[in-house]
Computed example of a mutant assay.
Amino acid sequence: MSTYGLFTRVFGPPPGTGAPSVVLVHGLGLSGRYFVPLARRLAANGVTVLVPDLPGNVRSRVCVRRTPDVVRTAEALARWHRQLVPGPSLLVANSVGCQVVAALAARHPSLVHRLVLLGPALTPGVSVWRQGAGLLADAFREPPALLGLAAADYLRTGPLRWAVSLRHALRDADVAFEDHLARVAVPTLVVRGAGDTLVSEAWTRRVTRLVPDGRAAEVADAAHAAHYSAPDAVAELIEKFAAGADG
């Protein structure tokens, strides 16, 4: 459904019925489709799960004329959140989506109860060529179904918008991402697939140290999109973390 300008998938009880809310935020050029396995798993326990397509991406492509940068995307997501989600939610993001939710959490702390960063990219100071090589290597470690889904999403978003989004994300990584992480005021779980070739163990440790209340977890037999290849394992980590236990 289209909700407040952003196409949104809803799983579990409708928003506003009193169930806890989880918002899943996708990565660069993608849609929320690759979060569906995790969304269904979380919703099975009575949680309201909302999965928007960010502005400029796939089914929310036409809601903006120009591709927004990371901060403008975070502001659009904050407006959507205020209109649709009652009270603070648990935000879960993957890849460049982690830059978006870090900006949102830093600028609008009242909207976030807890934060989960799955494969937080991009890494500051690393060239686009090295990060591209890492992403290409990761593709060989992901399920074939995910590659087909991602290719279809990239085509629908469009190569020009994808390239502009990448430029915005690289700039944010170099000038703002670490500052936003340091301003996150809520408990944060940083999750890395053990086979992730895009996000290094060293960067994961740094992210965990940057946020004031951070903890880390690793998912075995998973790569950058651990939530897609290992939804049960990731859901268990999220549920344990949401209940207040250590990740």
Results as ranks from 00 to 15, higher is better:
Ala152Thr: 08
Trp129His: 09
Gln99Ile: 11
Val49Ser: 01
Arg107Tyr: 13
Val47Pro: 00
Gly56Cys: 07
Leu146Lys: 07
Pro86Met: 00
Leu118Ser: 03
Arg114Cys: 06
Pro88Gln: 10
Asp69His: 05
Arg130Trp: 08
Arg156Cys: 10
Asp69Lys: 09
Thr73Ile: 02
Gly56Leu: 02
Ala121Asp: 05
Ala39Ile: 07
Ala145Gln: 09
Pro55Val: 15
Arg156Gln: 15
His81Cys: 12
Ser89Cys: 07
Leu50Phe: 14
Arg40Phe: 06
Leu122Ile: 10
Leu155Val: 10
Pro143Gln: 04
Ser60Ala: 08
Arg40Gln: 09
Val71Ala: 15
Gln83Ala: 08
Val51Leu: 03
Glu75Thr: 15
Gly97Tyr: 10
Leu122Glu: 06
His108Arg: 15
Arg141Trp: 05
Arg61Gly: 04
Thr73Trp: 01
Val36Ala: 13
Arg65His: 14
Phe35His: 11
Arg65Met: 14
Asn45Arg: 15
Arg41Ile: 13
Gly56Trp: 00
Leu104Ile: 04
Val112Gly: 03
Trp80Gln: 10
Asp53Thr: 00
Ser95Met: 12
Arg130Phe: 14
Gly46Ala: 05
Arg141Asp: 07
Arg61Val: 09
Thr123Ala: 11
Arg156Pro: 04
Arg33His: 08
Leu42Cys: 10
Thr157Ile: 05
Asp69Thr: 08
Gln131Asn: 06
Thr123Lys: 09
Val58Met: 06
Ala139Gly: 12
